[in-house]
């Protein structure tokens, strides 16, 4: 088939259909999708920011509450982007309605883009809500809106891709909670959300540098406060490299039909 303008319009409609379906899904069940993150982060702000934070003193040159805001927002973005894609795509495998897409002429990259866009939409929706909550606890002046938004979007894309790959390999609903519990949570906690890596001994600082979340937290902290442990160029470069790697991997899984075609 030649790829005339009609083809691109068709791809766009397909993308919009998948995205629209994903968007309606998470907004319809917002009590399960948006609310939990808002509640947990509010608790973090209360406990670590207000109650304990006052005794910790400044961190990385910032009041402790201000220091943890970027990390907590990012944590919400990460978990929501990830779990949106993993649960939605896995359900479509489990109930076999992924076949609706497989029989259609939608190319794999459009399918992937649609699901990732859904994950990004939920990640950003929850991230923005958490940010509003943070503003009730502290005054935040955004140092660089462009960097802030870019880091948020790239992070959401990266973890949406992660959720997609997880869904492809998952064979049961248990499998979709293994990665968040054993990989995602440790990575975010060790990614400098609650502390500056300057506090770590040299060896552990080096280990932390292998953690992609560290670059996102620091990129984001720069966007909000103009303060970072890591040079900004590095942060963007590494996130971008992960996005390209995971996209390529997802597309190769789709092409081979891993987990979705027998």
């Amino acid at each position: 088939m030649t790829r005339g303008p009609g083809t691109w319009r068709r791809y766009w409609v397909t993308f919009a259909t998948i995205f629209g379906k994903e968007f309606r899904r998470f907004t319809r069940i917002w009590v399960q999708t948006v609310l939990p993150s808002v509640i947990t982060t509010t608790l973090y702000f209360l406990i670590f920011g207000e109650l304990i934070g006052g005794r910790i003193g400044p961190m990385g040159g910032l009041p402790y509450l201000d220091f943890i805001v970027p990390g907590l927002v990012l944590m919400a973005v990460i978990t929501n982007a990830y779990s949106n894609v993993v649960s939605s795509f896995y359900s479509s495998k489990f109930s076999r309605y992924v076949e609706e897409l497989l029989v259609s002429p939608a190319p794999n990259w459009v399918i992937l883009a649609g699901y990732v866009a859904g994950g990004v939409a939920r990640g950003l929706t929850v991230g923005a809500t958490v940010m509003l909550v943070a503003m009730m606890f502290t005054r935040i002046e955004i140092h660089s809106p462009a960097v802030t938004l870019l880091v948020l979007c790239m992070t959401a894309v990266l973890f949406s891709l992660g959720g997609f790959i997880n869904a492809i390999y998952a064979n049961s609903f248990d499998d979709i909670s293994i990665v968040p519990t054993f990989v995602l949570t440790p990575l975010t906690y060790l990614g400098g959300v609650f502390y500056s890596i300057d506090l770590l001994p040299g060896f552990w600082q080096a280990v932390s540098l292998a953690n992609p979340v560290l670059y996102m937290v620091n990129g984001f902290r720069y966007g909000l406060h103009g303060v970072t442990d890591i040079p900004l160029g590095w942060a963007f470069g590494i996130i971008l490299a992960f996005i390209i790697g995971l996209s390529w991997f997802s597309l190769s899984l789709l092409r081979r039909g891993v987990g979705i075609k027998s």
């Binding site: 409609v13 397909t14 919009a16 629209g20 939608a106």
Partner: peptide
């Protein structure tokens, strides 16, 4: 309606 969308038919 969604299935039509997958085939590129506008909503």
């Amino acid at each position: 309606v969604n299935q039509a969308g997958y085939y590129g038919i506008p909503r």
